[in-house]
């Protein structure tokens, strides 16, 4: 079955079985291997991607259901300024160990910062609850996201002052 959508800015057309998940499609033919499969039933968050700008589980999304959609994986955010800050913060705060949860965690954190701006720690942790990390115990991740969030807020307010 044919499906066409935009993957990281490039229009693609794929001929897939209806049962093919978005994750399997982008990992296979298109080599977007930042999309990791940790459970294939929508709990662990390692496969998180953006569909039309909203985070989604690519393991429980059928590729054929995405005709006309805009799909973005971590590969597609290579030049994104907020993602660059997040990557730097994850490194500085030791927010990763084995790296398997990291792409999904980054995309979730990116979404959280864009949607919510400043958050108290408890809310930030709730926002990351759908991404399992088995290595870090989350402390470095939480610190990294908080730091990137602060920086984002500062940048935003600086930008709005400049605009006035």
């Amino acid at each position: 079955m044919k499906v066409s959508f935009t993957l990281n800015g490039d229009p693609i057309t794929a001929d897939v079985e209806p049962r093919t998940s978005l994750a399997d499609l982008v990992r296979g033919e298109h080599r977007c291997t930042s999309v990791h499969l940790g459970c294939e039933h929508g709990v662990c968050g390692a496969c998180t991607v953006l569909i039309d700008g909203k985070i989604a589980r690519s393991c429980i999304t059928l590729a054929v259901s995405l005709d006309g959609a805009m799909v973005t994986t971590l590969e597609g955010l290579a030049d994104d300024a907020l993602m660059a800050r997040l990557r730097e913060a994850f490194r500085t705060h030791h927010g990763l160990q084995c790296g398997y949860c990291t792409p999904g965690m980054l995309i979730t954190a990116h979404d959280l910062i864009r949607r919510k701006g400043a958050l108290a720690e408890a809310e930030l942790r709730q926002g990351l609850a759908g991404n399992i990390c088995r290595c870090t115990g989350y402390a470095g991740i939480v610190a990294a996201v908080a730091a990137a969030m602060d920086e984002h807020e500062t940048t935003k307010s600086a930008a709005s002052i400049a605009a006035e």
């Binding site: 929508g42 968050g45 569909i51 985070i55 989604a56 589980r57 979730t108 926002g127 759908g130």
Partner: peptide
């Protein structure tokens, strides 16, 4: 409900 990535769909 569940997590944001699930709530979006």
């Amino acid at each position: 409900i569940a997590y944001r990535a699930v709530r979006n769909r």
